[in-house]
Design a binder for these strands. Structure first.
Lengths: 145, 145
DNA sequence: TCCATTTATGCCAAAATATGACAAAACCTG
DNA sequence: CAGGTTTTGTCATATTTTGGCATAAATGGA
């Protein structure tokens, strides 16, 4: 499971190292060094390749000419990139995603069990305030499960 | 699978290079360097030849004199062009299609699993706003599948 | 049918970008 | 604080994308 929060520096060329705990989990639980990163709200959502492929299988069952499906794919698949983790544990984040999100200095990695997120420090700070408020409102979400 | 988004420049003569990740997928998954490109909404829809042939087989099963079928064929088949990818990974986009869509500078390539799309930068920007809204509305499209 | 003009193709090389390898710096952990 | 691990920086190399030019093919008009 991916857990916790880490700050890493992204290079001018768009390289950033994945937290070692995340890498370890990728290897142990998913036996892969490939992740799919895609745009989600104001951050990058990162899936271990096997998790992602499950998602794709479901998408392939949809009526693929329908407007809704096409738009859904354009967004979710159209922003998805397969990244191979290199020998020093880094990935390259494609320019287009970097630009969209303003990723240039400190990136925040946030573990979310079966996936993790990458934020620019700035939008993380803005957003975490909101999600804290939201957390306060939704703290009982688990009760009854 | 085709995934992600890439910006490539089209030359005055209508040549543009296919993103290398797409080419790789064409070779690996489809063992072909031929794609069929056709008009779809405001963009070009591009199919690996084997995928296209599957589509044609399905079309042949339709009631071929029905108005809907004829219209569908006129549009989808009537605009279809077979393109061979050259040694530097480029294709030539026929003039008619270029003119119809105003393809002249930056083209956006968008992966959609079994096919990909080519947009002019301008119409992509317009359209992706809409499709994002649609994505927001249809993000539950997968629930229950 | 032939020629002139346009359009497409093949090939080479420059520019931009991504990748690999190595080593220095920062950091945990005991 | 010592020793190992993790993260970051740098440089060299490989790959990808683009531009240019020469040739080939197609098109259209007389």
């Amino acid at each position: 499971m991916f857990r916790g929060q880490f700050v890493h520096l992204i290079s001018k060329t768009g390289r950033v190292s994945i937290p070692s705990k995340f890498r370890e989990n990728l290897k142990r639980a998913y036996k892969t060094s490939k992740v799919i990163i895609t745009l989600f709200e104001n951050c990058l959502s990162c899936y271990p390749l096997p998790e992602w492929e499950k998602l794709e299988k479901r998408i392939l069952k949809l009526p693929r000419f329908k407007k809704n499906t096409v738009d859904f794919e354009r967004h979710l698949i159209g922003n998805a990139n397969e990244c191979e983790i290199d020998t020093e544990g880094r990935i390259n984040i494609p320019q287009i995603l970097r630009k969209d999100l303003g990723l240039n200095k400190n990136l925040i990695f946030v573990g979310l069990l079966t996936r993790f997120e990458i934020w620019s420090e700035k939008s993380w700070n803005v957003n975490s305030k909101n999600s804290f408020k939201n957390f306060q409102r939704s703290r009982d979400v688990l009760d009854g499960i």
